[in-house]
Write a protein that binds this DNA or RNA. Structure first.
Lengths: 135, 135
DNA sequence: ATAACGTACAACCAACCGGTTGTACGTTGT
DNA sequence: ACAACGTACAACCGGTTGGTTGTACGTTAT
C-alpha cells in the first residue's frame, strides 16, 4: 500500500510549504503544543492544526497527548530518510561522471595509436568532487 | 524577490511528484531529450514537458538546445543544496538534545545536596548519535 | 458549576496542480 | 518541396490544497 514512493510523495509535499517547514524547525528544536505553534503564525488555529496534521501524516512529526494539550515533536529519523533519498540521487550523478571518464579513456585509447579522423578536443580529466555528504 | 524560502518551496514542490523524481534520476545519470523522456512514461508528451519545465524552474535541471532537440541534464549542486537544508534541520534537533542534557545536569545538581521533594526517575545519559551526515 | 482553553473536524471557497487536446513553429530527413 | 519530428504553449477540466468559519467535546481554572 504505502510504498517508498508514496512516502516520498508525502515527505516532499509536506516540506513544500514554508509554514510547515517552519513548524518542523520548531518541533525539531523542542516540543510545542499545537496552540503554542498556532500563536506564532498569522493564520487561524485550524489552519495551523491542518499543517501539523500534514506533517504528522508524512511521519515527520509525532504528537503526544498531555491533558488537553497535544505536544508535537519532530522526528529526526524521518528527516534523515529524506536526506538519504537525496544522497541516492547524488550517487546516480556520480555514476554518470564515471561513465564519462570511461568514454574519455576509450577515446584516448582509440586515438593513441592510429591517428585517424575523429577530431580532438582539448583533453582534461573529468573532475569528480570527493564523495562528500551534505554539509 | 526569489529568496531562500521561495527556492525551497520550488525545490520541494518539484520533488513532491514521483514522475518528476524519476525524470530527475534519469537526467542526473545522463543527458536526455524531452521526447526521449516522454517515451518512458504513460502520459502525453505535453505532460512530461510540463514536468521538465517545473524541474527547470526549480533549478534542479538545465536544458541545452541541440538542433530541434532540448537536452535535459540534472544539476547535482541544486540537489546538494536541498540536502544541506535537511542537514540544517538536523542541527536544530541536535541543539534540542544538548539543551536536554543541560536540563538533566541541572536536575542532578539540584538533588545532589538537598534531598527534597522532586521525584527521581531512573537517570540515564541522553544518547546522541554521532553527528553523521546522510549516507 | 461554569467559564475559558486546547483540540478536532466538517463544510465551504478560491487558487493551484496534473493531466488532456489542439495549435504553431523551427529542424531534420527524403 | 514537403512530410515527419521535437518542442513550446494555450485552453480546458476534475481533483487537491491552503485558507476560512463554525461546531462539538474533553480538560483546566475560577
Amino acid at each position: 500500500m504505502t510504498d517508498d514512493e508514496d512516502r516520498a510523495d508525502a515527505w516532499f509535499h509536506a516540506l513544500s510549504d514554508r509554514t510547515r517547514r517552519d513548524i518542523l524547525r520548531r518541533v525539531l528544536a523542542g516540543e510545542h503544543s499545537v496552540s503554542a505553534l498556532a500563536r506564532s503564525y498569522d493564520m487561524s488555529f485550524a489552519a495551523v492544526q491542518k499543517h501539523v496534521a500534514v506533517l504528522e501524516r508524512a511521519g515527520l512529526l509525532t504528537k503526544r497527548r498531555q491533558g488537553r494539550e497535544a505536544l508535537a515533536s519532530g522526528d529526526v529519523e524521518a528527516v534523515r530518510s529524506v536526506g538519504a533519498m537525496l544522497t541516492e540521487l547524488e550517487a546516480l550523478w556520480r555514476g554518470r561522471i564515471s561513465r564519462m571518464d570511461e568514454l574519455f579513456a576509450e577515446q584516448a585509447r582509440e586515438q593513441a595509436l592510429p591517428p585517424q579522423k575523429t577530431q580532438q578536443t582539448t583533453q582534461q580529466k573529468t573532475q569528480v568532487d570527493p564523495p562528500r555528504t551534505h554539509g
